[in-house]
Design a protein around this nucleic acid. Sequence first.
DNA 1: ATGAAAGCGCTAACAA
DNA 2: TTGTTAGCGCTTTCAT
Lengths: 333, 333
Amino acid sequence: MKQIAAELGVSVTTVSKVLNKAPDIGDVTRARVLAYIADHGYRPNAVARSLTLSRTSTIGVVIPDLMHSFFVEILAAMDAVVAPKGYRLLLCASSENAEKERSELEALAERRVDGLVVAPAHATDNEDHLATMMKRGVALVMMDRDDHPAIACHRVLTDDRQVGRLATEHLIALGHTRLGHIAGPAIIHARRRYEGYRDALSAHGLAFDDSLVAEGTFLQADGEAAMRVLLQRSPRPSAVFVANDPMAIGAMKAVWDAGLRIPEDIAIVGAGNIIHGDMLRVPLTTVTWSRHEMGTRAAELLLQQLADPTTPPSRVIVEPHLLVRASCGAGQG
Amino acid sequence: MKQIAAELGVSVTTVSKVLNKAPDIGDVTRARVLAYIADHGYRPNAVARSLTLSRTSTIGVVIPDLMHSFFVEILAAMDAVVAPKGYRLLLCASSENAEKERSELEALAERRVDGLVVAPAHATDNEDHLATMMKRGVALVMMDRDDHPAIACHRVLTDDRQVGRLATEHLIALGHTRLGHIAGPAIIHARRRYEGYRDALSAHGLAFDDSLVAEGTFLQADGEAAMRVLLQRSPRPSAVFVANDPMAIGAMKAVWDAGLRIPEDIAIVGAGNIIHGDMLRVPLTTVTWSRHEMGTRAAELLLQQLADPTTPPSRVIVEPHLLVRASCGAGQG
DNA sequence: ATGAAAGCGCTAACAA
DNA sequence: TTGTTAGCGCTTTCAT
């Protein structure tokens, strides 16, 4: 393409300089080049540019669930800080599946993204990839999830144990004593929510009953299946803390399919404040924290790391709080 | 990197051939190379590869609303057909904004995507870009929206006029006579839904009342604002066809905020079958069509176009049908 | 103020 | 079966 631009009788170097706003270019030449570009509709080739610069101005983002508004909101916040700096986001979904995640990470590695924001789908898998990418100089931020302790990267998280506590204590305050939990998969993030649940139980002298805990992968379908299991227990729990909102919605479905009512027969509290959670048949009480802050902080850390790769890893915690709606019953207890 | 692989005393060509599974390579050499790659964790540089091949194996996707499950479901379907062929999707959101769309299209052009799937946000803007990209040999599929008639590309659509008819006739069958419409923006797709609404009106001898039509951009917030406008009319409409589900949800919010009931005071029908539409406080009656089929067909057409750029443009229509839930009241009327 | 030359990591003829 | 050579489109010293 620049060949063609050399039709103006200038060198490719000159054109390149014009495009990069180099100062050492004559005004007339610059004008000529700009004019030519304007009406011939030339677009620089980012691929070639990336190759020479060994920099793609692209940030890979790997999230576990594209259908969950939580991650999409974070994404939007990241994009807002990163786009003005000339970076683009390359979005990948792992579907809470370590293998899919691996293949996405490999693709991102081959594409030579400058940075990476990931909410890992698994506690141990793919750690090699993450480590390799860091070693290669790819800036890494771990987002929402806190596994892979050996990876020394920035982390933007919420206080998951507190999430579990807030949710469970709300239920307890409402007078429930037979409390179930639908847990997430075997990652530390889910584990902490579970621990928060147990914290609250023991803080209030309630016995822990193993049979009242079911497990899912954080996806809606699993929440439904898990709730069906809990409904088999007798006596069944009168209230359930579900580890995230998509599963909570699945759980609600299971409750209604069983002909029971929320919250009269069973109270439900989720986490993550999914979109339209306030518009549901029974508005979902949930624990929430700022997606905007998570996305913004993650993006800022990423950019900082890109600017100065020696920045020591930091750990930012976005505080959660309870959002009371209708799915646990009337008042604040 | 291949320099380093030439540590094995072979040429880069040889390594390249191994990676591309060329047949003319000795078994022992192949094995040695593969072994080296395996334990040195080498990843080919897709940027360089793209440069030589002038092919990125990337398909750009521009959708208007990342928070709308409709598009995300289509995306998932596309990914499922395209990924096994070695293509990756590069996702961009226009937020129903022509300027944002323009900047995303420019970025995709610079990145030299091989193909493009777009649901255009505007009837005329950015047509130059689309045309230029086609001229450059980028395979283009227009998805869900049918503007830019001058662009001769594949199109995967639903029958939008029929969408409007189905929705409106449902309302009429239920006995409503004062029918409002919350329309989408000035694109043909929205216009057709509006025409379907008018078709149904006149087919049943109902007068069209201009004051009962409000307009939004397809985003939820606009649906809410538009419904507030319609509620000012007196008498207000007893039923409203909203051009898509996100706006329908916004509209529901406005109705409830005004202290009215759905469907008793006002019936609502949407279009697009948004996720959790069945779980809303009042389950949303909507017109639906297969996102899976749309995504699959779009992806297949894209691949075909990539394989044979001379393929004449085709036009596939995915038929819509009514999905009755509760937001318009009891029975089938 | 402008340009020549080298090189980013890869693939594709074409030779050997 | 393997290697040599020549680019892909760009940026970047370093001369001029």
